[in-house]
Amino acid sequence: MPVRRGHVAPQNTFLDTIIRKFEGQSRKFIIANARVENCAVIYCNDGFCELCGYSRAEVMQRPCTCDFLHGPRTQRRAAAQIAQALLGAEERKVEIAFYRKDGSCFLCLVDVVPVKNEDGAVIMFILNFEVVMEKDMVGSPAHDTNHRGPPTSWLAPGRAKTFRLKLPALLALTARESSVRSGGAGGAGAPGAVVVDVDLTPAAPSSESLALDEVTAMDNHVAGLGPAEERRALVGPGSPPRSAPGQLPSPRAHSLNPDASGSSCSLARTRSRESCASVRRASSADDIEAMRAGVLPPPPRHASTGAMHPLRSGLLNSTSDSDLVRYRTISKIPQITLNFVDLKGDPFLASPTSDREIIAPKIKERTHNVTEKVTQVLSLGADVLPEYKLQAPRIHRWTILHYSPFKAVWDWLILLLVIYTAVFTPYSAAFLLKETEEGPPATECGYACQPLAVVDLIVDIMFIVDILINFRTTYVNANEEVVSHPGRIAVHYFKGWFLIDMVAAIPFDLLI
């Protein structure tokens, strides 16, 4: 008679799926529990143990900040960024110097990925580790590398530091407007667009060049630039800015003055950032001319202004700041037409079709709590990747769950009947059967004279019903998954307890 339990259901295979997918890609990662103190490590794979030199037993239950890997060259700011990422709910990448158990130093890129439950609360953290440099290539500990984003994938490793954006290309926007319009339909740009040429040739750093990471940081200074100062900065030398009595002219307006920039070969870094931020506020060169004239017309309804409409929906549905990093990277690809469009465009503009998908598509409701890094690593669709929660398995109709209350009560009843059979069957065979043979035949009273025979008949009927119930009862397979398919249940029961239950259900007393 089957006594099969499996009270692990309803099970959740999400954690096993993450481990299996990460292991298949030869990654070095740990999984931490966000619900406990210090976000203790609950799993670390073999790749991480080989990377740091510690065994799994030495890593388990330690804080996922990996303070046991810190050393003299470990930056405090990087460690603080990892700790801050564990307090938030967004994906974050941090470069930090770690030390192995043998004392060797290596520069590592740590990717902190939160995993949320159905309520939107962070319950786990996945920390992925990628070695960037070994100890002989690690720089000085005073050099802070965590304020910069990861290198873009479309640049060669040897040319990542030679990417320079020439400031004269930004200063000569109005001069290039006529050349853009003359391109017409034969050019790649839309009317009114501004073409910015980027020099990728390796050259020595000069005062006129600005690194790509500095251009990325310009967006942080746009908020500090007032509207009046932006307007004066875009007017140009024809209309000098008016300053109040006793007030000095704005240095932001002076930063885009061609006369002032041409007199000296070098520009201050602050002026460069502010000038680029001011130019980015204009949607095209037409807006710059309109600002000089004193009238700013409404933005025209053409394809170039609607190019950012799908980007707005993608940004609203993005799951991490990696989408913004990807957008900034692609927006700086050289030799393309940049349409400086305000994100607050007309909502009635139709979304044009684009061959290049900048932001990841909208994630469906079932995966809105899973970050983009987890979705990318697992390579699963929205119909396959579940949320991290207890999910009731989908069972067929008329199927009994093996952990249901009805099955528990039924098993206790069958257990009592088995005990009765084990006690009274030998007793009936030894004593009652002998008395029946010696006594007179009682054929007239039937079952009324033999109450134990009636009980034995009921017990046999219950055993037959138990066999039928076992054909529709779920079970737990070797992978700790609840199986509810009727065919698989029948095959599993035939290979197991079916023969024993059938022999126990045969009414031998009635056959004798």
Results as ranks from 00 to 15, higher is better:
4 R>V: 09
7 H>L: 15
9 A>L: 06
12 N>V: 12
13 T>R: 13
21 K>H: 11
26 S>V: 05
27 R>I: 05
27 R>S: 11
28 K>D: 05
28 K>R: 09
32 A>H: 01
35 R>G: 11
36 V>F: 01
41 V>E: 01
43 Y>G: 01
49 C>N: 10
50 E>Q: 15
53 G>P: 01
59 V>Q: 01
59 V>T: 01
62 R>M: 08
63 P>V: 03
63 P>C: 13
64 C>N: 01
69 L>Y: 01
70 H>I: 05
71 G>Y: 01
73 R>I: 08
79 A>Q: 10
85 A>K: 01
86 L>C: 14
87 L>H: 15
96 I>H: 01
97 A>S: 11
100 R>D: 01
101 K>M: 01
101 K>C: 01
103 G>Y: 05
105 C>H: 12
107 L>R: 14
115 V>P: 01
117 N>I: 12
118 E>T: 13
119 D>W: 05
121 A>M: 04
123 I>W: 11
125 F>Q: 12
126 I>E: 01
127 L>R: 01
128 N>C: 09
128 N>I: 09
132 V>G: 15
133 M>T: 14
141 P>S: 06
151 P>N: 11
153 S>Q: 06
154 W>E: 15
154 W>C: 04
158 G>F: 13
168 P>R: 08
169 A>T: 12
171 L>H: 09
175 A>V: 01
175 A>W: 03
177 E>G: 15
179 S>L: 06
182 S>R: 14
183 G>I: 14
184 G>A: 15
186 G>S: 11
189 G>H: 06
193 A>E: 10
194 V>C: 07
197 D>Y: 01
201 T>R: 09
207 S>C: 05
213 D>Y: 03
213 D>A: 13
222 V>A: 15
223 A>M: 06
225 L>G: 12
238 G>W: 15
243 S>M: 15
246 G>S: 10
246 G>C: 10
247 Q>V: 15
250 S>P: 15
251 P>Q: 11
252 R>H: 13
256 L>D: 06
256 L>V: 14
257 N>F: 14
260 A>T: 12
262 G>E: 07
262 G>D: 10
267 L>Q: 06
267 L>H: 11
271 R>Y: 05
271 R>P: 14
273 R>C: 07
273 R>G: 14
276 C>F: 04
276 C>A: 03
278 S>E: 11
279 V>A: 14
280 R>T: 13
288 I>T: 12
289 E>D: 07
289 E>H: 04
292 R>M: 15
295 V>M: 08
295 V>F: 14
298 P>L: 07
300 P>T: 06
309 H>T: 07
310 P>F: 09
311 L>K: 12
314 G>W: 05
315 L>R: 09
317 N>C: 07
322 S>V: 13
324 L>S: 12
325 V>F: 11
326 R>D: 13
327 Y>E: 12
327 Y>M: 08
328 R>F: 03
330 I>Q: 14
332 K>C: 04
335 Q>H: 13
347 P>C: 15
352 P>E: 04
357 E>L: 05
361 P>D: 04
365 E>K: 14
366 R>A: 09
366 R>T: 14
371 T>R: 07
378 L>G: 01
379 S>Q: 06
380 L>A: 03
380 L>I: 04
381 G>R: 03
385 L>V: 07
386 P>T: 01
386 P>S: 03
386 P>Y: 03
